[in-house]
């Protein structure tokens, strides 16, 4: 089955990004395809390569990058939400790309399921 995932929160204030990541990993482990994760609202902060959590904390930006590169998951950061929050191309971790909100609607059309994580 093809999954699309919408994430609406950043990696530190809410649990949503972690839940989304664990769901994506579990879906892939079960042999499903996660075609795209769309990062909206404060979730655009999941893409910031300068994010430096303490050493005993998980590094979600890195985990997303690995998921994206190892499993071909398209990690899309919403351009309008990103610009508001100062997230630009040069800040993106590997595997992320900035694109329009149309990518969210498109994955809604193409995926079998769209699952939202937010606050």
């Amino acid at each position: 089955m093809k999954f699309g995932i919408l994430v609406n929160e950043g990696p530190f204030t809410h649990q949503a990004s972690d839940s989304a990541y664990l769901f994506a990993k579990a879906a892939i482990a079960k042999g499903h395809e996660v075609t795209r994760v769309f990062f909206y609202h404060d979730a655009v902060n999941n893409s910031n390569k300068h994010s430096a959590p303490q050493s005993d904390d998980r590094n979600l930006v890195k985990l997303w990058s690995e998921l994206g590169t190892e499993h071909g998951v398209d990690l899309v950061v919403c351009v309008a939400a990103a610009l508001r929050r100062g997230i630009t191309d040069d800040l993106l971790a590997e595997g992320f790309n900035i694109s329009g909100l149309g990518q969210l609607i498109e994955v809604g059309i193409e995926a079998d399921r769209l699952v939202t994580f937010g606050d």
């Binding site: 999954f3 579990a26 879906a27 499903h32 399921r113 937010g118």
Partner: peptide, 20 residues
């Protein structure tokens, strides 16, 4: 359920609505 069970639930149902 565990996360795998969450994935199964999403597969078994046609749409997923998140009450945020």
């Amino acid at each position: 359920v565990d996360y795998g069970g969450f994935v199964d639930l999403a597969c078994e149902h046609d749409t997923v609505q998140s009450w945020l």
